[in-house]
């Protein structure tokens, strides 16, 4: 096995470009999944089953089908309907949508974990439903679920390489491009592999620190 440090040095500029795209996709994907997941979770508590049932079915479907095929779907089908996004935007939307079906369950667990007494107190104080949610229930529920949401950010990080399949030049995309141009596969692929391990390890350390701060 021959290892060429020169190839590593040549790859590094591309690596930083790729890292930037990966982190962008991760940040935007997280925001979409956090917001949309909360929307799903609230819709699942709607009084009418004509809201609950379709939302449940759609999210179950998205959760149980591969993200890769969903990426292809959005990337190839949306232009047929005359909706054109850049590849990165499509990827961000797909990741955010896919993971919102996971975060939705996290929020649900958080909302259910708020003690019944809090609901009763809100009723006793004659708070309108809107204020019950925004001032009483959600602040307590969201605080509880931040660590679980963080786990899904790490999971999302590990799914960003899939964006390569729809021509986004994230870390894996850059590595593949470099490998094909220079016929050196070992170095770039190993560099990004190690980078992923380091980033997800750092992220989990940060998360544990955050968890200690919040759960007190």
């Amino acid at each position: 096995m021959q290892w060429d440090w020169g190839a590593v040095a040549d790859f590094m500029p591309h690596f930083w470009d790729g890292l930037l795209v990966t982190l962008q996709a991760l940040a935007l994907g997280s925001v979409i999944s956090f917001v949309l997941g909360l929307v799903w979770a609230l819709l699942m508590r709607a009084p009418s089953r004509f809201v609950r049932w379709p939302v449940g079915a759609v999210t179950e479907f998205i959760r149980n089908t591969p993200l890769l095929v969903q990426l292809f779907f959005l990337f190839y089908v949306l232009p047929e309907w005359n909706i054109t996004f850049s590849a990165l935007t499509t990827g961000v939307v797909a990741i955010g949508l896919h993971y919102s079906t996971y975060t939705m369950q996290v929020y649900r667990a958080g909302i259910e974990a708020v003690p019944v007494g809090q609901w009763e107190a809100a009723t006793a104080l004659n708070l309108p439903p809107r204020r019950t949610w925004t001032a009483v229930i959600l602040p307590q529920a969201v605080r509880r679920v931040v660590p679980a949401l963080g786990n899904y950010v790490i999971a999302m990080l590990k799914d960003t390489p899939m964006l390569m399949a729809i021509t986004v030049l994230d870390m894996l995309g850059e590595a593949r491009l470099f490998a094909q141009q220079n016929f050196q596969f070992t170095e770039p692929l190993t560099v990004i592999g190690v980078a992923f391990i380091l980033i997800s390890y750092l992220a989990s350390v940060l998360l544990r620190a955050l968890e200690r701060r919040l759960v007190r």
């Binding site: 590990k158 799914d159 390489p161 899939m162 390569m164 592999g193 391990i197």
Partner: peptide
């Protein structure tokens, strides 16, 4: 658990053979 499955697949397909 730290790496992505897709990177593992690339690794097994492209790095293992020459190594």
């Amino acid at each position: 658990r730290g790496t992505s499955a897709l990177i593992m697949i690339f690794w097994v397909f492209f790095v293992l053979p020459p190594a």
